[in-house]
Design a protein around this nucleic acid. Structure first.
Lengths: 250, 250
DNA sequence: GCACTATTGTCTATCTTTAAGACAATAAAT
DNA sequence: ATTTATTGTCTTAAAGATAGACAATAGTGC
């Protein structure tokens, strides 16, 4: 599916890219949406893209994220710029070139289509929080597939993308204590246990149930709804809803 | 003083710049080092620069900072990227052009030397913490002068530079609670009162003396030295030194 | 030398927040 | 009716933050 506008390279800011760490949550597991590259050999890379000349960087990140998730009003946040001089992981790069010499040409990297692999890039890292149920993952021409992977069990990714995820997760943890953003990862209604399991998967540690509930309720941002009857042989938990649902786009 | 290498524009990454908020502390006042532009009219702009093709962004920031302060091992931190599509403050820009038509040409901005004023740039914001006594502020060819200004009483700066300082200060406040970086703003030895006044100038609010002292000493990072006899008619305060002096470059 | 002043270093009491333990309430299964 | 797993909430204990108090002391003025 080609872009209608099919912009030439000159329409983009050169040597500057955006890489996105898209977090989604399901089955007590924090996941990241990662495409597999359409190359021989197993190479993954974070969803990324470039910035048009007359486009803000947040705007560009939103466009890229919508292209991969189908979601318009997405919660996103800049977390760092990656711009070391040699950002490539040499071992990865050599294997990729070795396995894909035909595509890349004899004198590798003359093909404009693929020079992003080796040209020096500075990349702005964004992370996004989405309700995994609303996402319909979309491939681009460069991708073989795109899937959710557990944040602590990711496939081998090119360049410094593993460090990016690590940095995004650390920033998310910090921000979670200050802003109130975790609910972007949940469906509209949820039980207290689900909130706790979400926090536990983000911080990778257990919380005390009694105190956790108190802490969250003391924030005064949840609205208690009717009970949720799961069919299990125990007391039914209440459902909650975040007060400013929808107004959480940052 | 021209750069010896005198690099052509092609040696830089295009449309990507670094802007620096350099914090210094003196006389109970948090200051920022700001050059005044060598244009008619009163225009100030944060110290900035570009990134060489084979240079990391942190490395570039260090080079720029050394050029303005003369300090090599400087504490610095990325705090945000500024990349809205129209970053220019139109009113400023119009006045600057009006007052400097001769320099900028009839068809303004044909001069490569000055096109940074209007070309679309994405800028990486860094803040730096320096001991103001070690700094010898240096002008570039573009500057008329360079001086320290109180962080809450800055001269009119171009573009979004006021927002940059605001954002840098907020990040500094957040980081101060987590990392231990404030001592980069102080001389090697200092009294507890000086530390407190520094914190008060950064957070723009008062702290209780007794509890502040306890909190800082409980961090176990200060080494108590001999007393400092100021000549004042009161008990002489102890001098302190930061334990890992010099190892604070981040 | 002696009272006086401004400031420092530290102690204690109080309030608030965080953490841990305990237990009744309840939806379904037996 | 009894049992089971889980939930909602209360109580108590520990830790941390906040505020008040006061002795110690380097100089000043007499």
């Amino acid at each position: 599916m080609k872009d209608i506008h099919s912009p030439s390279e000159q329409d983009y800011i050169q040597q500057l890219s955006i890489d996105c760490v898209i977090f989604g949550y399901q089955d007590s597991q924090l996941n990241v949406l990662v495409p597999k590259l359409n190359f021989r050999g197993d190479f993954w890379a974070l969803p990324s893209g470039f910035i048009y000349q007359n486009e803000g960087i947040d705007q560009a990140a939103r466009r890229i994220l919508e292209g991969r998730t189908g979601i318009k009003d997405i919660y996103l946040e800049q977390f760092r710029v990656f711009g070391d001089a040699p950002r490539s992981n040499i071992r990865f790069l050599e294997r990729l070139i070795e396995l894909n010499e035909d595509k890349l040409g004899d004198k590798p990297f003359n093909h404009k289509e693929f020079d992003w692999i080796t040209r020096r890039f500075v990349s702005i890292g964004y992370y996004a929080l989405v309700d995994i149920r609303k996402v319909v993952p979309r491939k681009t021409d460069l991708d073989e597939s795109i899937d959710w992977y557990p944040v602590r069990d990711l496939p081998p990714m090119i360049m410094d993308h593993h460090e990016m995820v690590k940095c995004a997760l650390e920033t998310l943890q910090l921000n979670l204590d200050q802003k109130l953003i975790a609910f972007n990862l949940l469906p509209e209604t949820f039980t207290m246990r689900e909130v706790q399991e979400l926090y536990e998967s983000i911080f990778d540690r257990a919380f005390a149930r009694n105190n956790f509930q108190k802490k969250i309720l003391d924030l005064n941002v949840l609205e208690r709804l009717e009970k949720k009857f799961t069919g299990a042989a125990n007391k039914a938990p209440f459902l909650y809803r975040f007060r400013n649902a929808g107004a959480q786009v940052g």
